[in-house]
Amino acid sequence: MYEDVKMPEGMNPEVLEHLMAPKNYGKIEDPSGVGVAMDEQTGEYVIFYIQTDGEIIEDLKFATNGCQDTVVVGSMFSAMVKGDNIQNGKKALAKMELKLGGLTPKQRVCTDMVLEAFVASLINREHLLNGENEEMHIIKMKESCEVEENE
């Protein structure tokens, strides 16, 4: 499962498609969970909405005010886990995290922000299932998008 997980590599037709029409972009009314990853230093954020039926991720959408790397990763990741179960979604997450080392520092932070927002949406779902009153779960990023490219 997700052995061949994809990360954006340069400008190819697939990346261009994600740039021109990001998949699963937007929001879900009455979702099962909402999560935000926030870079307080720059004000950049990624927000994920998930809609689950039992353990199946029936639908998920994301939005961001971040850069195009963030959009492409959000589009690719959401397309990959939509329709799968939460357990496999977490596996996809782990596979993508393993690949973070091969990215530039900026791409790494952007990708991490997408993945953290997805994690936050799962946490929010858990909290709501446990009867907590939480509008959305927010994770503050430790690293900022403003990392130097020559870091």
Binding site: L16, P22, G26, V36, N65
Partner: peptide, 13 residues
């Protein structure tokens, strides 16, 4: 040849 609509703004923005 890459004309595309900018993505929608979220209210947080």
């Amino acid at each position: 040849g890459i004309l595309a609509l900018p993505r929608e703004l979220h209210s947080m923005t």
